[in-house]
Design a protein around this nucleic acid. Structure first.
Lengths: 144, 144
DNA sequence: CAATACATTAGAATCGTTCTAATTACCGAC
DNA sequence: GTCGGTAATTAGAACGATTCTAATGTATTG
């Protein structure tokens, strides 16, 4: 039974190329996950959600692998991790500099168009430290 | 056995007044925790850390009560909760508007002097939503 | 295609946090 | 003060997200 599972019958050389470039072995699981994650538009996923989506799409992959893969993708710069909720991690396929709305009521993360947040002035980092990143999260909730 | 445990022999009317004002019963535990939290300078604590500190100071209090109390304090505006780490919550005694350095290497949170971060421009919230808060976290790490 | 290094896996373990049901403490009325 | 009712505290179990472990499977290299 060659080609065990979906995500391959199309021009998904994108996923392959992408993994090659960052030096990760193109395994069946990583190819499938890259296929799910790196489509036309940017995405925000949790580990559990991606796992559900993969299983749903007929991709056999364990939750452990989801975690491994997400963290590897972060390490090589394919993904960003966004911290907005103690106890859940979000992963963002948009790795360009930008910020987020977090919909507290429904637990959804949304990109803010780059230009509409302006950081006027940044403080010097504490002595002996360097700035790793600047995260801006605007928490929003239902109106009423 | 009156006055079971420390934190009372001094002019800690501060803690008492503070609880009265927000309408929380001044129990032994809440008084002790308020005493630990609201001193001269602002603090950033995790639940576990505060518990350790309390036990250390001879205050008999359970971890469950630490969590209950911290959340109540947040609800009445005595504390802010700061999200910087998936899987740990920090509580901040500084409830005025300000932002944070997060020392990723050692898991420490530090206030940024109010004036040294300037948000030049904020986006409109998504339709039907209102902005609950704007969090800026500058992640820093050891130099080398 | 064999050898080897790397990936994946199920399930157990861990972490921080929340829940539960039982006990204890505060507080106002007497 | 004592009593009673309500609210707070508690130990320990339960929980959800994540990480770990040791065994099995798979991509790569020669």
């Amino acid at each position: 039974m060659a080609n065990t599972q979906g995500a391959s019958t199309r021009g998904d050389g994108g996923a392959l190329r992408c993994l090659k470039q960052v030096g990760l072995r193109p395994t069946r699981q990583r190819l499938a996950l890259a296929g799910l994650l790196f489509g036309d538009s940017h995405r925000h996923v949790t580990a559990e959600a991606l796992h559900a989506e993969a299983v749903d799409a007929g991709v056999r992959v364990s939750l452990a692998t989801i975690y491994n893969t997400l963290h590897q993708f972060v390490k090589v710069g394919l993904l960003d991790e966004v911290v907005v909720d103690p106890g859940k991690s979000y992963f963002d396929t948009n790795t360009t500099e930008h910020h987020h709305f977090y919909h507290e009521d429904i637990g959804r993360l949304e990109d803010i168009p780059g230009s509409s947040v302006v950081l006027g002035r940044l403080p010097d980092p504490p002595a002996g430290k360097r700035i790793a990143s600047v995260d801006v999260v605007i928490r929003v909730t239902g109106d009423r």
